[in-house]
Amino acid sequence: MNVSSSMFHEIDLDGAKDLYRKLVLARFFEEQAAVLYSQGHIYGFCHLYIGQEAVIAGLSHVKQPQDSVVTSYRDHAHMLALGVPPNVIMAELCGRTQGCSRGKGGSMHMYCKERNFYGGNGIVGAQVSIGAGLAFAHKYNDDGGVAFTFYGDGAANQGQVFEAFNMASLWKLPVVFVLENNHYALGTAENRAVSGSGLSTRGDSFGIPTIMVDGMDVFDVIKKSKNVIEKVRCGDGPVILHMDTYRYKGHSMSDPANYRSRDEVENIKKTRDPILNTKKILLSDFGVSTDDLTKIENETKVVVETAARFAIESSEPDSSDLEKDVIL
């Protein structure tokens, strides 16, 4: 862990516990989703976030209420971190009418206007232009907000990402591009898809600074992003937060991930796991007790089990819903 002690001092005890709660909520929720998937309650495409939790846990810590967020189809944890109730997310994954999209969106298409969360997008890279548009609205309305725009290393190769970079920089839009680089676009390793000097220099020709972040370390996420985001907020133009992260599971539930070695995955789980490492720091540097952490874990298990029960017991959409909400 490469964290300065001054970093810890900006996070108080409650803040530290809150971070841990966000990390384990994301992890436990996804593990529960995998169970429901195996039982057939969740179906279709379902992309788990396990391994990448530090990215959204850390950024939700620095996010302000007026900020907006948009991401890809790997979106469950983002909603959880923004405070959307786990019950309605799980119900949506199960296609239930109590879900946040009334069962019509599913895993990839979830939204929460109250929390300025604009999806959930199933078209790889499309959310990057949309995120620039959210930032355009922040600037237009002069509301002091920034748009957190998450995308993966796969999306980074989409043409419209460059278009969005260009306009965001040209117009100094308050957008924080968050590259969640988990190094595999489905089964294509980064080095098989990225030319030249790599993703870390993609912002250079647009005059967009790139900040390299350990996306497995929640404290590094907070430390590296906090001041940078405030500059974006003040009108300095966009930045790219390049999160070096890793997903433990396949691209989606149907991907056995045979394109990488078991050793590679196990080694990262052992050395860089965001939850284990955060736990160590909370115990050693914040004086949090093991009991405190166990309590958080147990409470979170209950939250997640409750969400699963809520989802399973929720009803399927009524047939009368089929043609609702096509047009206003």
Partner: peptide, 18 residues
């Protein structure tokens, strides 16, 4: 700039935001 995909997406994002 000449970037239809990008500016259409920016328009959509701005419309989502009101």
């Amino acid at each position: 700039p000449i970037a239809e995909y990008g500016f259409a997406g920016i328009g959509v994002g701005a419309a989502f935001a009101g």
